[in-house]
Design a protein around this nucleic acid. Sequence first.
DNA 1: TCTGGGGTCCTAGGACCC
DNA 2: TCTGGGGTCCTAGGACCC
Length: 450
Amino acid sequence: MSFTPLEKNDQTILRPSSLRLCSGSATRSSIFALVDCNNFYVSCERVFNPKLEGRPVVVLSNNDGVVVARSEEAKALGIGMAIPFFEVRNVIQKAGVEVYSSNYTLYADLSRRVTSILTQFTPELEIYSIDEVFLNLSGFERTGLAEYARRIVQTVKKWTGIPTSIGIAPTKVLAKAANRLAKKTKGTGGVIDFTSFSDLSEPLSKIEVGDLWGVGPQSEKKLKERGIETALDLREADDKQILKLLGVVGQRIVFELRGVSCLPLGLVRQVRKSVVVSRSFGHKAEKLTELKEAVAEYASQAAERLRGERLCAGVLTVFAVTRAHGTPPQTHSESAKFPAPTDSTPELIRAAERGIEKIFRPGWPFRKTGVVLTGLVPAGEVQADLFDGANRARTRRLMQALDAVNGELGPGLLRYAATGVKQDWRMKSEHRSRRYTTRWEELLEAAAIF
DNA sequence: TCTGGGGTCCTAGGACCC
DNA sequence: TCTGGGGTCCTAGGACCC
């Protein structure tokens, strides 16, 4: 191949930060296959409730807010992705759409089963999300890549009940595109192999630039203003123009469209870099007490997540979003660094409360708050700070007891008083299915009524 | 009177993804 | 009622150092 984007003397394209543009040029090339579970959450519900087959089904996000998965029948009714539930309530009632709350434990379990089947087809794979896995199919060319992929689809379906689609290509961006096409095109057996095409111009000309992986609404707008409408247009675009317009991220996408791999397979699981707990308020909040209860609640949830993964946080950031009528939302934030990384609920709550006190102004219409933990380190590697004065061993035992009780009897049974009792600021969730696993929380809510 | 150059680290904000 | 929640990476700009 004559195309060599990595030439370090090519000053017209590369700036110092772009030297990382493409990596692994010396390593053996991969053939990427993206395995994507079709309508994953809906498919999971159907595995356990075959009556849902052929019927319109939607799954809602955690706190009831929006639609996060739709069956084909539901899509056909015009129910959009990430659309607020109340907006489609009428359609849902009229058409008799089945509505489910998210059951992440179930989905994660099925995801693990799918992945473990995939490991039998290739040793090199990257778990990209709960419903997507990249495989390296390099070495299976003689079997016939498409044929091999169809066997994967059939096996996963047979052993788990989950339908999948597979796109095959020399780069991740192209594999994503092939996958989209495979999902939309009938008679492919759920598989499209771009490596068998002599020329990709035709399929790429049918893909809108905004549908490409990595091209979001902002980039799409910029590109279309300059006449770049399709994936083909982007592939043929001028390098310097794209670099200026979209930075190295955009440049990478262009290279990948040309078949030059810039995004290698991530074989090792990345360590977590942050923990976020945030929620929108049911109604706008204007009282400091509400905000303090909310951030205390989020800080203690974040602390539990931290301890569950044996991590400590060095920095806590609390943020709040305000939005006056008809104006764009504004985010305000305050960060605090701990003397030593911590996983202690009371310490995190105190930091969150101090942060929100600094942010708070009377009369501001607060819509959402959240707590972000960063500077994460493994709990075992925390350096003791001789001067911070806290009795760490005692706190640790207390946190262990707290987690043990909540683990046994349901999350939220033992809570810090700072998180409030009635929690009126909570989002409304009238359509939530029963919390089978957290009965105590329901009892507490019921008790708070009196 | 006028005021180097280069490097690192950190942070806030933007953009994107599922 | 009027766009969720949890993540990652990149970049620009400021602080600081030699």
